[in-house]
Nucleic acid binder design. Sequence first.
DNA 1: CGACATGTTGAGACACATCAAACTGAGTGG
DNA 2: CCACTCAGTTTGATGTGTCTCAACATGTCG
Lengths: 227, 227
Amino acid sequence: MQNQLCCQQCHFSQLCLPYSFELKEIEKLDDIIVRKNPYHRRQRLFEAGQPLHSLYAVRSGSFKSFILSEDGQEQITAFHLPGDVIGFDAIHNKTHPSFAEALETSMVCELPYSSLDELGEMFPKLRQQLSRTMSGMLCQNQEALMVLNKYTANERLSHFLASLGHRFGDRGFSPTSFRLSMTRSEIGNYLGLSIETVSRILTQLQKDGKISVEGKLINLLVPTLAD
Amino acid sequence: MQNQLCCQQCHFSQLCLPYSFELKEIEKLDDIIVRKNPYHRRQRLFEAGQPLHSLYAVRSGSFKSFILSEDGQEQITAFHLPGDVIGFDAIHNKTHPSFAEALETSMVCELPYSSLDELGEMFPKLRQQLSRTMSGMLCQNQEALMVLNKYTANERLSHFLASLGHRFGDRGFSPTSFRLSMTRSEIGNYLGLSIETVSRILTQLQKDGKISVEGKLINLLVPTLAD
DNA sequence: CGACATGTTGAGACACATCAAACTGAGTGG
DNA sequence: CCACTCAGTTTGATGTGTCTCAACATGTCG
């Protein structure tokens, strides 16, 4: 498959699974990938309880992952940008424990897990990359734990914005000027803050001259938002 | 290696890597495992910044994993019981991002990562088990995120004790009566609570007749500590 | 037995949640 | 094109869960 949708043409391949692959390996990976129609806001890649069929690599747009508590409360566990792979948490029980939902119109590459498993048999680099990616997610989660336990509301939000900017930068976008695809409510849910606190701190950061806010448009005005 | 320390004789092998292995596979795994001398309280398996040499399976006793913030604050990210494997977060950068420290006198099995990698080449089940374990840790982290974001101090501690009891039960110990190998301070650090709050809630849970506390000895008196 | 870490308990402070009300903007239908 | 709606956002007033500070009790280990 040598069309415009293949991994070689994808701007985010160096962040995604093909990282450090040889040409031949990329072509093999391309063969198993299913390109899907765009997902629209609120549409789901999968729901909790569904059996694991595929992992999904974000091609454009963004997604949120979330789990539900026993009493039905939503807890957002991650926001996914292009190049991120979604669904690793389902490998454990071969069932998705979480939901994945588009935050805006988005494209994904579907990676059937059985094909990925077979391909891993042949390509050690693919196996290593899968391990590397999951391990990296563990590191992120540890960082997130510290943010929630040790940081104030202001620090959490600053860290969130800086981290988002950094991730946009990695993807070739501006690290200081971007559009939030998630609502204030979703940010608050993720950071363990009320929606009012998110709003208040956003305006306060603006008053302090650290950022400028125009609805969903964010501008980071100081290199680090710390202190 | 057919001594008393081999995986076949280990009570926790069904929770550990050999889960669902054939005899031949277990023997191969046994060959690469290094049995170490006991670690004493405060001794470390590894420190942040050290290159990844090995993963470690807890054989007896318990450990904590923690990371340090830029300003040197400790954040405990997990407590490890027998059968748990420690060090997966180091695969990402081939360097440990975290510390692992014994909470009491403990034994571990050292699993040299390069040997594990080679062995994975031959045994698909080992690869799958490694993936399954890492995926399971992702699920745990998601749960932890919800506990921190949505639960009150009382609920966090109740959930912590119930979860610990459950894990002891899985290992053939009493799920309702156990000894805490970590200090109040370490519990508070992990749950994002002050040491005073941990202490207060422990005594309050006792007054409510839900648990009995005698220093580090805990008795869970109601099946679920909820509400 | 003394010394030092660990744990308990109380009083006051504060960061953030909750409640309440008004504002904005995007989409819808007349 | 304008009213209408409704989700999302902002801002203010008040409440509260947990932290902090402080003093004391207990346990542990040389």
